[in-house]
Design a protein around this nucleic acid. Structure first.
Length: 278
DNA sequence: GCCGTCACCTGTGGGC
DNA sequence: TGCCCACAGGTGACGG
């Protein structure tokens, strides 16, 4: 399930493969992937456009063309492949034919991924409209500090885990990494956001940066099916609590509960705190 | 405004 | 062996 490190890995892997290549045709096999345009409009805005760059904002990929931006969210299982042959995978939903003779394929088993196309707009203006204007700061952004989080959290009764998953507060963290960050910060995922003190907020920020940088370095996490151009990440070997049975610190049994509808792993001993429900 | 729930999807695995 | 069903999860929409 692509989170910030996985999306960054896709960006880094894909960019040298498609940069300066022109789209000569587009096939769409599942129209619901395209959210803000008809199939015809989508094709018209991309054909004869050249890939200039790939940017990333949170978990969104932004393909940069001369006159357009294609915003792609991989959601749960979206993947991009560059292929030469014509064989179509059952889960292939969009195909971009390039002037190099290759094809860029978008593959998504659960069809959750989205694509939005924007034309004749500057990057500055693109950042001012949905979906990119909904994003909070990334952990690497200096503006994401304990004061910022304190202001966001101070009136909230929601569990800290739900708040960290909220992309309008912190952009880029997903279910796996939030579990890891809370374990490193020794904070119970059910603890109310307003009860997190300033020292713990700083710990959350520091742990988020450390975890994400390490994951990017290892090419992300491959738990189920994530990959970019067929490459698998190695961060799953470094996970401390997510999908684990035993705490690596105190050897207690890791508990699995639901928080905000999400499967949540934590150590009830290392992550014990006032107000905990477990 | 805040917060919880549901829908979107399909492969997987457990139970019968 | 085969069928059924719960579950996985990021995000947006919706309702209380």
């Amino acid at each position: 399930m692509p989170e910030l490190p996985e999306v960054e890995t896709v960006r880094l892997t894909l960019l040298p493969l498609i940069k300066n290549k022109k789209i000569i045709s587009v096939d769409i096999f599942y129209e619901n992937i395209i959210k803000n345009a008809s199939v015809l409009e989508f094709k018209e805005k991309l054909i004869n456009q050249t890939f200039l760059d790939i940017l990333r904002f949170g978990k969104y990929l932004v393909f940069v063309f001369e006159n357009s931006f294609l915003i792609s969210h991989l959601r749960m299982e979206g993947k991009f492949y560059l292929k030469h042959n014509e064989n179509k995978d059952i889960h292939e939903h969009v195909r971009f034919y390039l002037d190099s003779g290759e094809t860029l394929r978008y593959n998504d088993v659960r069809k959750f991924g989205t694509m939005n196309i924007f034309s004749n707009i500057s990057l500055t203006d693109l950042l001012k409209i949905k979906p990119l204007n909904q994003l909070g700061y990334e952990p690497f952004d200096p503006k994401l500090n304990s004061t910022y989080l304190k202001n966001k959290f101070k009136h909230s009764n929601r569990p800290i885990k739900s708040m960290l998953l909220d992309q309008s507060i912190i952009a880029g963290l997903g279910n796996i990494y939030v579990d890891e960050v809370l374990f490193l910060s020794k904070i119970n995922p059910l603890k109310k956001a307003k009860d997190i003190n300033e020292e713990q907020l700083q710990l959350i920020i520091d742990s988020s940066i450390d975890t994400l940088l390490k994951a990017i370095k290892l090419g992300g996490t491959t738990i189920h099916s994530f990959s970019s151009d067929g490459i698998s990440g190695k961060f799953q070997n470094e996970l401390l609590v997510h999908t684990k049975n035993t705490c690596p610190i105190c050897r207690s049994n890791i508990l699995k509960i639901k928080v905000g509808g999400r499967g949540t792993y934590f150590c009830p001993v290392c992550q014990k705190g006032k107000g905990d429900a477990i």
